[in-house]
Design a binder for these strands. Structure first.
Length: 252
DNA sequence: AGGTCTGTTCAGCT
DNA sequence: TAGCTGAACAGACC
């Protein structure tokens, strides 16, 4: 499931197509490719070349030098596939061919990924990988929402998904249902530090699924630190796992 | 074979 | 306004 680490990996792959002329665009899937006008993305991009691959949170984009920007989102199951990938493109929802024969595709079984022109991400918060300590305290440490719900709010900070939120809260020993406004500065700083460390590890190890709390996600899982039986509950609308012993409900 | 679960974003509600 | 719920999709799993 793509979260910030997977999106960053995708951005790195997109960097490999910079500086090549676009010769073909497949934007036929008018659910994934927005807006709906058939061929609009295609005609906007043909003949251009991309000069920069950007990312904020899970939002990706490719800038052309003087033309439009292509926005990409992986949704819940998407990834960026290069033509060299062995898997056949059964689920390519959007694809670009370049003059040198290179091709990349948004490969997405669920069709919840998106390809758009000139994306507006002004509502999206700062990237979770480089949010400052002060900014984190400000954006996460206020209000009455459960801290887990706030971590998932892309307007507050961008890039944290369900699995990464659980992993970071567990590493920081903060219970997911704690109200944001009741977290101490020490807890907020610890949460930010552990969130960043969890993202670093995930980028290095191949994705959010490699997290300690995540690998054996399922019923009957025990805390990797203290072996207590994990709790499972719906918090912030999402399935949440946490350790009742390591992550107490009261401030620490 | 049918029902449930999944995980991200957005619209719509309180 | 802040926070919650459900819809969108379609494959994986039981």
């Amino acid at each position: 499931m793509p979260e910030l680490p997977e999106a960053e990996r995708a951005r790195q792959i997109l960097e490999s197509v910079l500086g090549r002329r676009v010769t073909a665009v497949d934007d036929a899937d008018d659910y994934v490719c927005r807006p709906h006008q058939r061929g609009e993305i295609r005609s906007a991009l043909l003949g251009h070349e991309f000069v920069r691959a950007g990312r904020r949170g899970k939002f990706l984009w490719l800038d052309t030098a003087d033309g439009p920007t292509l926005g990409l989102h992986l949704g819940m199951a998407g990834r960026i596939a290069l033509d060299s990938d062995a898997e056949r493109p059964h689920w390519d929802r959007f694809a670009i061919d370049f003059a040198d024969g290179t091709r990349f595709a948004l490969r997405d079984k669920r069709r919840l990924g998106r390809a758009v022109l000139n994306p507006d991400i002004s509502h999206v918060g700062p990237d979770a990988a480089d949010i400052t300590r002060a900014d984190f305290r400000e954006r996460v440490g206020r209000g009455a929402a459960p801290v887990k719900a706030r971590l998932l709010d892309q307007k507050a900070l961008a890039g944290v998904g369900n699995l990464l939120a659980d992993e970071a809260l567990w590493r920081a020993r903060v219970a997911p249902a704690r109200a944001t406004g009741e977290l101490s500065e020490q807890e907020l700083d610890r949460l930010r530090r552990e969130l960043r460390a969890a993202m670093r590890d995930a980028i290095r190890d191949g994705g959010v699924h490699t997290g300690l709390l995540i690998v054996d996600r399922g019923r009957g899982q025990r805390c990797p630190r203290c072996s207590a039986a994990l709790e499972r509950e719906r918090i912030g609308g999402r399935t949440t796992f946490w350790c009742p012993r390591c992550q107490p409900e009261a401030p620490v």
